[in-house]
Every structure is written in C-alpha cells, then in structure tokens.
Simulated assay, not measured.
Amino acid sequence: MSIRVKICGLSTPETMAAALEAGADWIGLVRFPKSPRHVDLDAARTLSAQARGRAERVVLLVDPDDAALDAALEAIDPDLIQLHGVETPERVAAIRRRAGRPVMKALGVASRADLDRISAFAAADRLLLDAKPPSGAVLPGGNGRPFDWTLLDGADLPSGWMLSGGLDPLSVAAALARTGATAVDVSSGVESAPGVKDPDRIAAFVRAARAAG
C-alpha cells in the first residue's frame, strides 16, 4: 500500500518545488498569522498556482469566519480545506457547504477520551489526528510533538485518517508501523528553523514514508 504524504507550511517557491519534486501528495498553505508558516494571500495564490495539477492543494485555517474562508478560497482555490481550530461539528459542516469542497478536521490527541470526539465529525471528509498542543501554546499544531501512538490501539478510526504530530524523516517509519496509518502530515519535522523548510529533509521524509509503505 502506498503511503500518502502531506508537506504542510510551505512558504517559498523553492521549498514548494522541493515538495513537488519529492512527490508529495498534498501541499499545505497556512493562513494563521501567529504561525511562522503563515503566508499572505498574494504569496498563497502564487504557491497554489505552482502546485496546481501536481499535488492536491490544502489551505490550513484556524476558526475562520466566512470572510476569511471566502478570501482563502478565492486566492488559493484549494482542493481541500484543513480546519485546525476548535471548530464545532456544526461549523465544519457549514464550512463544507459554503466552500463546496472537501474538508479535513484536525483533532488534538492526548488521551483516549480525545478519540471519543471522532464520531461527532462525520461531516468531515478526512480526520487528521495530531498531538494536542501543550498548555499555553500559541499554535494549535506544528509544535513538533508526537502523541502516544498506543492510544490508537483498537480505536475505530475512519477511512482516510491522517497521522501528524512530531513526525520527521527518522520517526515516520516507526509511526506508520505502530499505527497502521496510510497517510501522514509533516511540518516542523522537515524544517531547519521554525517556518524554514529544508529541501533535503522534505525529500528524506517522503522517501522514508514511501519505503515504509
């Protein structure tokens, strides 16, 4: 089974090219000003055009209002919307209706009880299981922290779920073997500094993930 890979938080044409050349299935553009990976709408438009037809384009939004959603849709024309805030199931469904395209909801995991929320998000086309941010963290994701993968043992996970949280080229094979995930998402694990993607690490991550599959 081929493992699908998302490289999130791309912000320059050079690192976008590296992700595309490595064969990433999804590329992620972050629209969250507090993040070091945030891109403005003009840059996002250019990067999205660069990836068009070569990888699925994902825009990451955090609790967007309708105006922010509409602006991202117009500039990026994403293939998938990733919601990484505290959006309710009702809001996820409303965003999906308004956007008219698939939505992925990120859920933070720190305990088995966090998995009980999965069934509520049936409106989402995909679920991304990420490490719950530490107390006081500014970012809802991209903190370079894994969660305890044993929490997924015996869990009823929906088709197409994606694993995130603290993955890097050295850990992704073990993560895939332990969890049975068929799709992975990486951001800080392929950076040389916060928000600075490393082309060599991007290529190594994709190679490692595909080899593990």
Score class of each variant (00 low, 15 high):
G85Y: 13
R207C: 10
G189F: 00
A175P: 02
D200Q: 15
G141C: 01
A67F: 03
R207T: 13
S188V: 03
K6D: 08
S187Y: 01
A193P: 14
A43V: 14
P36N: 05
D25I: 03
M16I: 09
T179V: 08
V59T: 14
P133G: 07
E74F: 04
V206A: 10
M1W: 01
P36K: 10
V103N: 13
I81R: 08
P146A: 00
R57M: 03
L60H: 04
W161M: 13
S164D: 01
A55L: 11
V172P: 05
L107V: 05
G195L: 09
R96G: 14
V138F: 10
L151S: 04
P89T: 04
L139G: 06
A177G: 04
K34N: 06
R45P: 13
T182V: 14
S192C: 09
G180W: 11
R4I: 01
R54P: 04
G180S: 09
D116G: 07
S159R: 14
A75L: 06
P134Y: 00
R97Q: 15
H84Y: 12
A49L: 14
K6R: 11
A18L: 05
G144P: 05
A175G: 11
V109D: 09
A131Q: 08
E74G: 14
R101A: 05
K105G: 14
A122E: 12
T150C: 00
L151G: 07
G100R: 07
R210A: 05
V109C: 06
F32I: 02
I7M: 01
A173T: 07
